[in-house]
């Protein structure tokens, strides 16, 4: 089983990202489970959402304590939350940030940075990074096929918005693939 924890702020679509990961993993022929950490929803407040992916049906209902992967939608959260908390030894953290700053070096886990905000502004025209980070996740980890992510995103958002989000997924995937 692979466990993923997504950190974001209320309104950034962290829960949607977790759900789309679950849909995409299922598209890949796997079982999946996505759920929020059930906070009181407020725009801007720190939010956590989880996804589990496995080859067999998933029964466990507790939160994720030892993630294989962590996705951080907003680099300012690094100051507030231990984003590496509980991460497995060979785990990977994917962070949306403009540059590899000094701050990232203090994180006690393998970190990959992606400028998801720039990709979102360039491709979607708005700083909505959740779908961008799904592309980055697929590119960096290889856990989910790009096509499955694109299908899940395309089905969730209709029309032009859907097309732009799918294009952003593509761009982020390529950026990370080059990295990895």
């Amino acid at each position: 089983m692979k466990e993923i924890r997504i950190h974001g702020r209320g309104g950034q679509g962290s829960v949607t990202a977790a759900e789309l990961l679950a849909v995409a993993a299922f598209e890949d022929g796997k079982y999946s489970q996505a759920f929020p950490s059930f906070g009181v929803e407020r725009r801007g407040a720190p939010v956590v959402a989880f996804t589990r992916i496995d080859d067999k049906p998933i029964r466990i209902r507790s939160q994720v304590y030892e993630p294989d992967y962590v996705v951080v939608q907003d680099a300012t959260l690094i100051d507030v939350i231990d984003v590496a908390g509980g991460i497995k030894k060979d785990g990977l953290i994917i962070i949306n940030t403009e540059t590899d700053t000094e701050k990232l070096k203090n994180i006690s886990a393998k970190v990959m940075a992606v400028d998801a905000t720039k990709i979102a502004m360039d491709v979607i025209g708005r700083p909505i990074v959740n779908t961008v980070l799904l592309g980055a996740f697929a590119g960096a980890t290889g856990e989910i096929r790009l096509e499955s992510i694109k299908k899940a995103v395309g089905e969730r958002f209709s029309g032009k918005i859907g097309e732009k989000n799918v294009a952003a997924v593509d761009a982020a995937y390529k950026a990370m693939e080059a990295h990895a």
Partner: peptide, 12 residues
Amino acid sequence: FDGFILTHVYEP
């Protein structure tokens, strides 16, 4: 059925 744990989970 359990609120949030089952009402808000996405799964097959």
